[in-house]
């Protein structure tokens, strides 16, 4: 589809400049993503309140606003993320000569792009679409979940050309099915574990993740990987944000420690620092693994 007609001239010139001087920024399409975010945010902020229900006029319909606007907004933004990934897929970018710092930088840039695509949803909270405090709180929780889910997506542009779309769909599908089978096996041998299934299952998942991770790293290091190894690597990328919080269960009383040392109620900035520090740490982990995988895949795979 041709979007050229709706692009302002000054942005086209800026885009040209980025292409010539900062190709990595140009590849990420960040100026177009920023433009989209600004236009959509302003539009929703200024006009969103005209189409929603008002609690004082339609009490019952106000309850539906979250579903009609915020949930639908998440769905539509997900479509935009797919489009952005498609643009990254089309560009056939060569990341093989990048140093670790630059690789990490691009990963952060990708993350910023995905977050920017979701920024307009916040306008629903401040612009009056979501009038009830309960809905606003739920919207913030959903938004932070999106920030979390954006981490694996920001690593996808590095590996997306290695897979067909349907391969990714099937890998995600069988990843879930595999987890259910693991749960079934743990259940069947439940008596062998101490503490019952719900206490031991997260540990089994972590162990399983580490075992698959070691296998994939070994295969890539020995350069005898196949397409199946790549799929396993892809599954690791997708499931990393699920496994990491599970590991917190085995790190002692981390939450208690935090509460004793600092009163989080009066130190809101600490929540931010901890949260965003965690995201930065996770993204660094992604950069290490994705760069390793990417550099190994430059060599031809074993058939």
């Amino acid at each position: 589809m041709n979007f050229d007609k709706i692009k302002p001239e000054f942005l086209k010139k800026l885009d040209q400049r980025l292409l010539l001087h900062y190709p990595a920024l140009w590849h990420s399409k960040i100026i177009w993503v920023v433009s989209y975010a600004v236009v959509a945010f302003t539009g929703i902020y200024l006009f969103g309140d005209f189409v929603d229900a008002e609690p004082e006029l339609h009490q019952y319909r106000e309850n539906d606003d979250f579903g009609w606007f915020f949930s639908l907004g998440i769905f539509l933004t997900s479509l935009m993320v797919i489009y952005w990934l498609y643009l990254q897929f089309q560009q056939k970018i060569d990341y093989s000569k990048l140093s670790f710092g630059k690789f990490l930088g691009i990963l952060f840039l990708n993350y910023a792009n995905i977050i920017l695509l979701f920024i307009p949803l916040i306008a629903m909270i401040y612009g009056g679409v979501l009038d009830m405090e309960r809905d606003q709180e739920y919207a913030w929780t959903s938004w932070y979940s999106v920030l979390y889910g954006a981490m694996p997506l920001s690593a996808l542009p590095f590996v997306i050309r290695q897979f067909k779309l349907i391969e990714m769909v099937l890998t995600a599908f069988f990843g879930f099915i595999y987890c259910l089978i693991v749960a079934l096996v743990v259940f069947l041998f439940n008596d062998s574990f101490n503490g019952g299934i719900m206490e031991q299952l997260p540990f089994v998942y972590i162990l399983n993740f580490v075992a698959i991770g070691a296998y994939v790293v070994f295969k890539f290091s020995a350069q005898n990987y196949t397409q199946q190894t790549k799929r396993l690597g892809f599954l690791l990328l997708l499931t990393f944000p699920i496994v990491v919080p599970l590991s917190f269960l085995y790190m002692g009383n981390l939450t208690d420690w935090r509460y004793y040392k600092y009163d989080l109620e009066t130190h809101h900035y600490l929540v931010w620092v901890l949260g965003y520090g965690f995201v930065a740490l996770m993204l660094t982990g992604y950069a290490v693994f994705t760069r390793f995988m990417y550099r190994r895949m430059v060599f031809p795979g074993k058939k």
Partner: peptide, 8 residues
């Protein structure tokens, strides 16, 4: 991608 953009 056409289908995705048409829905959006």
């Amino acid at each position: 991608i056409e289908i995705v953009l048409v829905v959006f």
